[in-house]
Amino acid sequence: MCLAVPGKVVRWLDREPLFARAEIEFEGVRRVCHMACVPEAELGEFVIVHAGVAISRVDAAEAQQLLHELRSLSESSEEPSL
């Protein structure tokens, strides 16, 4: 139920606050999502979408910083993703 996935904002469709909508791209597939909770989201930015509604703007810099810190922990590996 609380599952949510990140997608990229590719086109705003409606900016009226209660009915705000945008096209969001998930791995090349575009879906119309509701944007009332992320009215400031910008094109090209990632948002986290739950039940058709974007609930958060992704802090990409924070994500990269964490990954950088974690990779410094791990040795280089050719293993695939889980």
Binding site: P6, F46, S77, L82
Partner: peptide
């Protein structure tokens, strides 16, 4: 998927 696959890295 961007911002998902990176957090499934087996080595990390």
């Amino acid at each position: 998927m961007k911002l998902v696959d990176e957090f499934r890295d087996v080595a990390v």
